[in-house]
Design a binder for these strands. Structure first.
Lengths: 254, 254
DNA sequence: TTGCTCCTCACGTCACGTGAGGTGGC
DNA sequence: TTGCTCCTCACGTCACGTGAGGTGGC
């Protein structure tokens, strides 16, 4: 009584989809009229809507077949599973919306929130974008390699910035990037940094995070390979090493 | 620095997907190490996450390519569209959950709510499942052919059942299905039905729905082809026709 | 030697989409 | 005659999946 396009339109599918369901054996082939056209009755409408309902719910056509011919109690079980699956997919889509918003807003979606908080703190303190981006890249790699630890570690580093002297030195270090390597102020920075480090770690065990990094050569290589380099910073490292050696000697003498 | 599986795992995609993005030119091919393995840096993580975010939002890969290389303002516009699209799909999934529940609960999902209300009314009155199912099939076909009109029409028919005499006759008609065609009670039912119809339509214009059905031969054929048939019902029609003729004659004489 | 990760083809999959070429009633 | 719907192949599409056969470091 209905033509294929009427059937398809009522069910909200394409004509091709109906033919596809015939081919797959999901929907029985109806009688033909004198022109060879398929003619459908009410049962076909019901069958097609049942197929579409399951297909829309994400059931593969191969499974739709067995589901609709199975007994109703098994169908009811499956419907429960499908409903849970749909609920899960709705949550997923909500998450995708959040990520899209982040994509539009900026670059925060590539890192766990603790790392984002740490980077925000750097910005707040006045660290340059150049250094922040360099750190961000290092954190991304760390997050990819040690996703379980990177959160706590970032928090630890962020808390370190509550110390005003630490903040002052980090800023000085940042600013020194462009300096001439012979700048006399570099020696003072190196000395102050070393003094601070020694004070901070005096009598303290290194944290788990410290140990983890120290022990993982790959991670160290990973960070240093991406670290920014400049003549002034290379000089700073040399000065710090020299100062370290001097302090060691003093310690030996006393 | 990262291997392909580390990169893939962090982004939540398969290794094959990453290779696929390389092949499509979405993600630049990175450097190889001495074994010919791909080695990825932080930028690759960012790039891949951007690709995944858009792909998850339903953007075809061909479009992802142009979107990520386009300027950020166009990206922002598109993100808005994508977000609306995602919101639409969430609604759709919610709808699918409703339809699934209907599929598990019963058979109500194939018809507009007014028709369901009409069929519920039939059940409430005590009409047999046999007749209700026959009517349901006819309504499904009508809904497929005249989706715009079937709602109001069903409501009209449902309101008709507020008349107690109409209800009594509809029930009698239902019960008579199995009777012997020579049963003497059939004549009374036919006469009462005709009297009621004449009373109902006396001085009243036929409704739009009536006209529409009367004028659409295809719809009439469609309904009658699916109508139940029994010897008693055929007899009822004959009796009604004869009574109609007798009344016409009386009218002519007066 | 075994197990694991990586590599490159290249065909397979899923649910249809999309012509290609033709028919039938208005 | 034109336009519309229908018909049957049969190849195309999209985003990978899935072996097939091989390499390299522990």
């Amino acid at each position: 009584v209905l033509t294929i396009s009427q059937l398809a339109a009522y069910a909200g599918v394409t004509v091709r989809a109906v033919r596809h369901y015939h081919q797959r054996g999901l929907l029985p082939e109806p009688e033909r009229d004198s022109s060879g056209y398929r003619r459908y009755d009410a049962q076909a409408v019901i069958d097609l809507l049942r197929i579409k309902t399951l297909a829309d719910a994400g059931v593969p056509l191969a499974r739709v077949d067995s589901l609709l011919s199975a007994d109703p109690s098994r169908l009811a079980d499956t419907v429960e599973e499908l409903d849970a699956e749909l609920a899960r997919r709705i949550k997923e889509l909500r998450d995708h919306r959040k990520r899209l918003a982040q994509l539009a807003a900026g670059e925060r979606l590539y890192l766990p929130e603790q790392v984002v908080a740490y980077l925000d703190r750097l910005r707040e303190i006045g660290i340059s974008d150049r250094l922040i981006e360099s750190e961000r890249d290092a954190w991304i790699l760390l997050a990819a390699r040690m996703p379980e630890h990177v959160g706590t570690w970032a928090t630890e580093k962020r808390v370190g910035f509550d110390d005003p002297e630490f903040r002052r030195l980090y800023l000085a270090y940042d600013v020194a990037y462009d300096w001439d390597p012979d700048d006399p102020r570099l020696a003072q920075i190196a000395a102050d940094a070393l003094t601070l480090m020694l004070a901070l770690y005096a009598g303290k065990e290194p944290t788990d995070a410290d140990m983890m990094i120290m022990n993982d050569r790959e991670v160290l290589a990973l960070i240093s390979s991406h670290a920014l380099k400049s003549p002034a910073w290379t000089r700073l490292e040399e000065l710090a090493s020299a100062e370290m050696a001097r302090l060691s000697e003093l310690a030996d003498q006393s």
